[in-house]
Amino acid sequence: MARLAKSTYVEHPWRIQEFTSDFEVEDVWAFRTPGAGPGDFPTMLAAMRAFGGVARQAGPVRFLFAVRWKLGALLGWDKPTAGVGARVTSLRSRLPNDLRDADRGPDDDSMPLKAVYEIATESARELANNTVHTVMHLGWVQGADGDHELRMTVLVKPNGRFGRLYMAAIAPFRHLIVYPALTRQWERAWRDRHSLMAHRPEGTVDEHR
């Protein structure tokens, strides 16, 4: 994993840039995927989904998420009226016709980040609460070593001054604990992709919808 300059996101012509000019670039990270080619993005996404989410993370990450959800429940940060479709309009309302007609990717109630779109080299998911409207953008691009690699960009629109203070407060936890753990999980998913795909429970969704 490598933390990249925010300019690397701007320099690449990602489709999401067409309709998120009012969002700020919070973080840009690259994940190692040795031997990956230009058509392997769907394989990477499927491996990540097969590996599992927060429940498969290390104890410190699960603890941080548990504390965050508990605080959110106590303080009302995550109530339905603060989410996508209530406090903020989904980015799907901004999509150009070709992206709106494309597959979204898997989406269900267990996924806090909801699907916006998924195409051959990009995927975007969003979440909103009383602190921020955030987008996780995953992209597939050729790295410096010639192999393709996964890049994650976090785009945010803080909800006022409180939202900015919140983002600043959680930055050390993201950078020192959450992102390193996420890196280990995602990079391992790529390394173990063949066995993960072979041992997926029957009926697991990983195809585009």
Rank of each mutant, 00 (worst) to 15 (best):
Leu4Ile: 04
Ser7Val: 10
Val10Ala: 11
Glu11Ser: 14
His12Met: 07
Thr20Ser: 07
Glu24Gln: 14
Val25Gln: 01
Thr33Phe: 04
Pro34Asn: 02
Gly35Ile: 10
Gly37Asn: 07
Pro38Asp: 10
Pro38Asn: 02
Asp40Pro: 02
Phe41Cys: 08
Thr43Trp: 08
Ala46Ile: 03
Met48Arg: 11
Arg49Gly: 05
Ala50Arg: 12
Gly53Asn: 04
Gln57Tyr: 04
Pro60Ile: 01
Phe63Gln: 03
Phe65Cys: 03
Val67Ser: 05
Val67Trp: 04
Arg68Gly: 08
Lys70Leu: 14
Leu71Cys: 11
Leu75Phe: 14
Lys79Val: 12
Pro80Phe: 14
Pro80Leu: 12
Val84Thr: 10
Val84Asp: 06
Val88Leu: 03
Thr89Phe: 02
Thr89Tyr: 01
Thr89Ala: 15
Arg92Thr: 13
Ser93Ile: 02
Arg94Gly: 07
Pro96His: 07
Asp98Lys: 01
Leu99Thr: 10
Arg104Leu: 13
Gly105Asn: 05
Pro106Ala: 15
Ser110Ile: 04
Met111Gly: 01
Met111Leu: 14
Met111Asn: 08
Pro112Gln: 01
Pro112His: 04
Leu113Tyr: 14
Tyr117Ala: 08
Tyr117Leu: 09
Glu118Ser: 11
Glu118Lys: 02
Ile119Lys: 05
Ile119Glu: 08
Glu122Leu: 10
Ala124Trp: 04
Ala124Asn: 02
Ala128Cys: 15
Thr131Ile: 00
Val132Leu: 10
His133Val: 00
His133Met: 09
Val135Tyr: 02
Val135Pro: 03
Met136Arg: 01
Met136Gly: 12
Leu138Val: 08
Gly139Ala: 13
Gly139His: 03
Gly139Gln: 05
Ala144Glu: 15
Asp147Gln: 01
Glu149Ile: 06
Leu150Asn: 06
Leu150Ile: 07
Val154Trp: 04
Val154Ser: 14
Leu155Asp: 08
Val156Lys: 06
Asn159Ala: 13
Phe162Pro: 00
Phe162Glu: 00
Phe162Ile: 13
Arg164Glu: 14
Met167Gly: 07
Ile170Tyr: 07
Phe173Lys: 00
Leu182Asn: 12
Thr183Glu: 15
Glu187Val: 09
Trp190Met: 02
Arg191Asn: 05
Arg191Ile: 11
Thr204Gln: 13
Thr204Ser: 12
Asp206His: 11
Asp206Gln: 06
His208Thr: 13
His208Pro: 09
Arg209Leu: 14
